[in-house]
């Protein structure tokens, strides 16, 4: 909890601060003693380089595109002469974070347009669980629902085709239960029983 002492000595780690020689938490989180880090349970996305994100083109001027990543800062995608692709306002794109300036301007590269489908906004803090270790969780959902799914680290998920309602239900369940164990098994059970032709078809 914010204000709780984590260490009686100064330590540098995310989501904490040092005051009078002690290290305090600044969010509600879980302490991971293996990695020695404080994992936030809630909160906005903070960009990191190399992360895959999903956004929407909101502005373009001379091959410089502004992309809405649904966070407090700005994101810019610069078209290059090697990339003949152009984007329209409202296009959904997947891209990688190349650089971050002043902690709030994100420079994107390696873009790819995502045609059709729909978007889902999830809590950015739950993205690692939604993806799962070595992509296991999201691959499980995609293979059973036959949906194309891409998860952006900024908390935007793109879904296309297949049983989107069921995939959405599974992702929401992971979001709600991200802090519990045995989640992979429970999601598999949900997908098996609710899928088309399953015993208990229902839509979220």
């Amino acid at each position: 909890m914010p204000g709780d002492v984590i260490f009686d000595k100064p330590m540098r780690m995310d989501n904490s601060y040092v005051e009078n020689g002690k290290t305090y938490a600044e969010v509600m989180g879980l302490f991971d003693s293996e990695k020695g880090s404080l994992v936030a349970l809630e909160g906005a996305w903070s960009p990191r380089t190399d992360e895959v994100v999903i956004g929407i083109i909101t502005n373009s001027r001379n091959q410089v595109y502004e992309v809405d990543l649904s966070f407090y800062g700005r994101a810019i995608l610069i078209g290059s002469k090697y990339d003949r692709q152009t984007y329209k306002l409202g296009d959904v794109v997947q891209a990688e974070v190349k650089d971050i300036e002043n902690r709030k301007t994100v420079i994107l590269w390696r873009p790819r347009t995502l045609y059709g489908g729909t978007l889902l906004d999830v809590k950015a803090t739950k993205v690692p669980r939604i993806i799962g270790k070595a992509n296991t969780m999201i691959m499980q959902i995609a293979s059973i629902t036959k949906s194309n799914i891409i998860v952006g680290n900024n908390g935007i998920v793109w879904l296309k085709g297949g049983d989107i309602a069921l995939a959405t239900m599974a992702i929401r369940k992971i979001e709600d239960e991200a802090h519990t164990s045995g989640l992979t098994e429970r999601i598999k059970k949900l997908l098996d029983t609710r899928q088309v032709g399953g015993t208990n078809k229902e839509i979220a």
Binding site: G55, I56, D68, S70, G90, V92, T118, L119, I156
Partner: peptide
Amino acid sequence: MEGLDIVKSHYV
């Protein structure tokens, strides 16, 4: 986020 809602409404 406005853009996100527009994409969702296309899907709907």
